[in-house]
Write a protein that binds this DNA or RNA. Structure first.
Lengths: 182, 182
DNA sequence: GATCACATGTAAGAAGTTACATGATTCT
DNA sequence: AGAATCATGTAACTTCTTACATGTGATC
């Protein structure tokens, strides 16, 4: 079976936090930065259909009276699949090109994996970010010098983003750790 | 006619800088952060085909002897279409969800649009980034307080990225302006 | 002469986008 | 009653991904 899409996992994670309908989910996606993973009904409803066919979510009983609504909740299989997804160790590609997906996993992993696993993932992330940053800086100091000025500037924007991530991850590990000792 | 894809414009822009083959372009995408816009032959060659059918690029004469190579160069129509694309004024969506595309435009706009247009685009970008940042901070200080700790952290990563962009754009405008006065 | 790297491409399938369709329910 | 909005979906289209196909020139 092929992998589920990022959007599918995002929906699954939100349902893990709170059973709700496709319409509710869509409102969430429109209202928050999670909308990057698409906020159109033409993506959300088919994704919910896929999750249902996989047996990862199931719709509750149809409400008697009131509007037609399908309130989905994750099945045990769905919870397990979601736990596997959020527990993935970050790959270099996650760091360099799918940071948003990694942050989605972080945002939704609370209550799903043990604090020790969260720490582990954040530690791996820190190492990978530092390494990636070093490679970008090396490029900038070396072959990057030959690029046109505007190309260099655009590249620096990328470097600054990664620097911001490197700083963030240190704070995040502290905050996540503190919470654990409560 | 529908819009060309981001990958298509990226290829067109690179060809504007330097006529070359699909293979050369692919090497570029693999070696640089431009790879985010896809670096697989299954995307690049069809994109080149589309550009050719649009009349935006044309292949030079087949080399006699040596390997089979199709060296593409932009046509006048292609140059014009590219200039239109890079000159677009940044939309809120460009700022919030397609920053990478915006940076691609910046990286490739040198020599294609007049310095005054570059300044104009960067100024618009600065205003839009500041506004977006303010909205994120308002969310963080308000409804964001109710999110789980890890979700807050992930959100803060996004805020920090945008802060980095806000700082970057100020430096970038200076550097781009200085260059102009040379 | 065999193998490797060059260079271009195609096929199947997944998933998103936009736009439209449909009906029920609540509001005025 | 009529309009707006809730809620779910479908259809056509585009483009990407992965994997494979093909042939030629260079290299050992």
């Amino acid at each position: 079976m092929t992998d589920e899409s990022t959007l599918g996992y995002a929906l699954l994670g939100l349902l893990t936090q709170q059973p709700q309908s496709g319409y509710d989910l869509r409102k969430l996606f429109v209202a928050t930065p999670m909308g990057v993973f698409s906020d159109s009904p033409g993506a959300i409803y088919p994704a919910l259909g896929r999750l249902e066919r996989r047996g990862w979510i199931a719709a509750g009983p149809a409400p008697r009276g009131g509007r037609r609504r399908r309130v989905y909740a994750p099945t045990p299989d769905g919870r397990a699949a979601f736990a596997v997804w959020v527990s993935q160790s970050p790959t270099p590609d996650d760091i360099a090109r799918r940071w948003d997906v990694l942050m989605l996993r972080v945002a939704l992993m609370g209550g799903v994996v043990k604090p020790a696993v969260v720490d582990q993932i954040l530690a791996t992330t820190q190492a990978a970010v530092d390494e990636y940053l070093a490679s970008l800086e090396a490029f900038h100091a070396g072959p990057g010098q030959e690029m046109p000025v505007l190309a260099q500037l655009a590249f620096e924007s990328g470097i600054e983003s990664v620097r911001a991530r490197a700083r963030w991850i240190r704070r995040a590990r502290q905050r996540a750790g503190v919470r654990r000792k409560r």
